[in-house]
Nucleic acid binder design. Structure first.
Lengths: 334, 334
DNA sequence: ATAGATGCAAACCCTTTGCACATTA
DNA sequence: TAATGTGCAAAGGGTTTGCATCTAT
């Protein structure tokens, strides 16, 4: 379960010299699964090097926090705990009151609500803490604790990437269905070809994402069975499903384009905002790449929509049309 | 700002004798606004009775927590704080890192998400902690801190009741609009009279709720201007708005009844679940009363729907009628 | 009279700090 | 050599506890 050690030389924004003891404590910390207390680490370190003092452990931990290698977390049991922060997104915690293990999750839905609440109260939020205290599945069923708690930082990053990919794939599938249907329904030949093109792109991109997903699962055979880390409901895939439903109700070519624009715009905004929220990690990258993809589709659709309007509307009457119709297609939906 | 003292004799599930010092500490605690630390209380208590020892304060606080008078909260600053819990719903916190004041909020949306997440992880949640750390409006703008932090427990209960009433009133208004429209559209005379009756009931109940709302604001002139305590989005009022939209799309009497049933059922479920979540308080009562009201409407509608079906459909051909032909309104109508 | 409450001081726990010494650049 | 890391022990802060002493019932 050893994780790939981060490049230590780059992890020294806090400055400082090399030192055997510090390196030892650091590497022990990084090997740990879950959230260790200073005491835990001190004991572990002393097994390798009996002469390590408590103070050094505390000082090293402080240094790690400053250097961005670790984050301090308070589970309310009187001692501080530390978790790796390098390429490990901020998250929330489920904390078992029996075994004191904690497992991590992220809910962008919760984060979004929290943002709204802070805004409503004129509060400049800098950090949000969500802890669910209770009894974990392993403690309740009495089974041995091979549960969600036993996940090290490297795995969390994989799980995060997995969940990001799952969201992206679901959206992509949904988009593919939408464009396939749209291509089917569109009468205007040029519009049809655009939808076909987009469907093809979605199909190709879907294949890429699926390959990437397989690549991930190859890194950890248990990856797929691990519990969800990233919870989301406001997913963009719902947009395309909604769009497809609208298509089914019967629309003309122009409306189909508008619906597509709405979906892609929503999706792009969603993934961009989503991606920006996270810290450096593969998951973040997946979201941002996906956002860019959607952006490209959006531009294509907008161009096509304009062209269609040009073709359909005689230039004379153009000035009587609302100029910015295409920038706010949302109005025509629901 | 002294709150009505709770009946102490009933607050002694933890047992124990009377004692002047304990009573003094308790009453000082209850007078406090916000969240006091043991030290705060000790200082305050010593102003009235110099001979009070730290240990007594700690022991009294422990006793208060056991007796359900107080709740211990940890804001991560190394000391425990205590907040009144008598008729004071569980809530979350916004914590200012500058002035260390904290203000309270409740988000049933967040709670619902948390429940889902815990369920997904097979985790038996017993308590959830949400803390938003950051800088409050008062500290940011430099204005004197008459902000949201300065709210004592009694006020929180009022604000909670206010928010509960606001939700109920919004739903009621929405329901009134729905039934008024439904009465207008319904051709079947009996069905029309049912909708009229419901509209009248909603109007009357609305008046009751508004009177209650005025009663609340009379208790605290600033009540209306206080920040939102209870955040919610999954409100039931949206159901009726959706229902009214469906009515507009053109439906027959039977369908109108079905839509009404759907709305009332959703609303009832929502308020019941909502109300049950909270601890004893006026807000809880408001939700539960409202749920009962909706339940009565629901029963009435269901009865009417059955009667209508009996009248309209000869038993033989009943099963051949398309039951839900127009549940999806045409999109082109917009 | 007796269980329970109180004050004081000491003990506790986790964490930080002062200082002499060791290590690193 | 100068700056930084380390160990030890002591000090810190918040909180709890042991024990003799009060105080309600």
């Amino acid at each position: 379960m050893a994780r790939p050690l981060p490049d230590l030389s780059r992890l020294r924004p806090a400055g400082g010299k090399h030192s055997t003891k510090r390196d030892r404590i650091l590497s022990i910390f990084l090997e740990q699964e879950g959230h260790s207390s200073a005491d835990d680490l001190c004991d572990l370190a002393r097994r390798q090097d009996a002469g390590i003092g408590r103070a050094t452990v505390y000082r090293t931990l402080q240094w790690m926090v400053e250097a961005g290698i670790a984050r301090k977390v308070d589970f309310g049991d009187g001692r501080s705990r530390f978790e790796p922060s390098y390429r490990h997104p901020r998250h929330f915690h489920l904390i078992c009151t029996i075994c004191h293990q904690s497992s991590e999750f992220l809910s962008s839905d919760v984060e979004a609500l929290v943002e709204e609440i802070a805004a409503a109260r004129d509060f400049a939020a800098s950090q949000t803490l969500v802890q669910i205290h209770g009894v974990c599945e392993a403690c309740r069923t009495g089974r041995t604790g091979k549960g969600a708690g036993a996940i090290d930082g490297a795995t969390t990053e994989l799980v995060f990437a997995r969940d990001a990919l799952r969201i992206a794939i679901a959206t992509e599938r949904s988009g593919l269905a939408f464009y396939t249907r749209a291509a089917h329904l569109t009468r205007d030949p040029r519009g049809r070809s655009v939808f076909r093109k987009l469907a093809a792109e979605e199909r190709e991109h879907l294949a890429t994402l699926e390959a990437r997903y397989r690549g991930l699962t190859a890194q950890d055979p248990q990856l797929e069975s691990r519990p969800t880390f990233l919870f989301f409901k406001g997913a963009a895939s719902g947009l395309f499903a909604e769009g497809a439903k609208q298509l089914r109700a019967g629309v003309d070519d122009q409306q189909a384009l508008l619906i597509g624009i709405k979906c892609e715009r929503g999706s792009h905004t969603f993934f961009k905002r989503y991606g920006e929220r996270f810290e450096d990690s593969e998951g973040k990258q997946i979201f941002l790449e996906f956002a860019a993809e959607e952006r490209a589709h959006l531009d294509l659709l907008i161009g096509e929509y304009r062209a269609l309007r040009e073709r359909q509307a005689p230039p004379v009457s153009r000035r009587h049309r609302p100029r910015r119709a295409a920038t706010r297609p949302a109005k025509s939906g629901r």
